[in-house]
Amino acid sequence: PPQTPIRAAMTSIQQLRGELISTGDQPSAILDTYFKNCTVDPTQDVLKRLETLEQAFSQRFGQAVGPRCVVLGKQRFTLGVRLYYKVMEAMLKSEEKRLSVQNFSKLLNDSTFHTSLLACSLEVVMATYGESSFKTGGYIQEVAGGDPTETDVCFPWILDVFNLAAFDFYKVIESFIKADPTMSKDIVKHLETCENLIMERIAWRRGSPLFELLKQEHEGGAAEQLETPAS
């Protein structure tokens, strides 16, 4: 039968749910070993952070989509957590192979890393369900001068919910795509569009950590090697 947008969306959702069936709602034995190998075990902080972020996500999802859809928000969050654990494990395996180390204490105790990774996982889940669309999204309305709408959850909605800097979200995108080779072409394209929006616009907004980093680079003497903005 011919592929329709609805059939394509249903297939993507079934694929995502199928791939995450074997991934539990808790860290796997392998991930748990990575946590235990840390100088400071991050397990409790990881679980506590997920609780806090789930509350923020559920509340804002309900506000955006409607109070009767709170249960959908919980389902999205549960899938997002599964994807978060799955991708984290794949990232750590890849880093272990690359660096020949098993102690990732600093990375695994970095709250920004976890929040960015979970935000990216939720963005993938919501994009799969067609809830994060750029065509009708608030971001487009916002840059077009309209009111930022509260009726959708399109990117960069998740950054606002988690109070996450776009520049920090940007850092996980490529590693995320590498770590999950089963993602559909459409979802990879969606993440690439997020990446481009950050690079071209969002990372340059007032308050972005990018400015502090540029300042540090400048103070470190690297400014002489930088090209001028014009070039």
Partner: peptide, 21 residues
């Protein structure tokens, strides 16, 4: 399976991006 352009070099990974090397 997709056209994403990977920009990270082999010696770069998530650890470096979060300054955890």
């Amino acid at each position: 399976s997709h056209d994403y352009h990977f920009g990270l070099e082999d010696h770069e990974g998530i650890s470096e991006l979060f300054d955890c090397d």
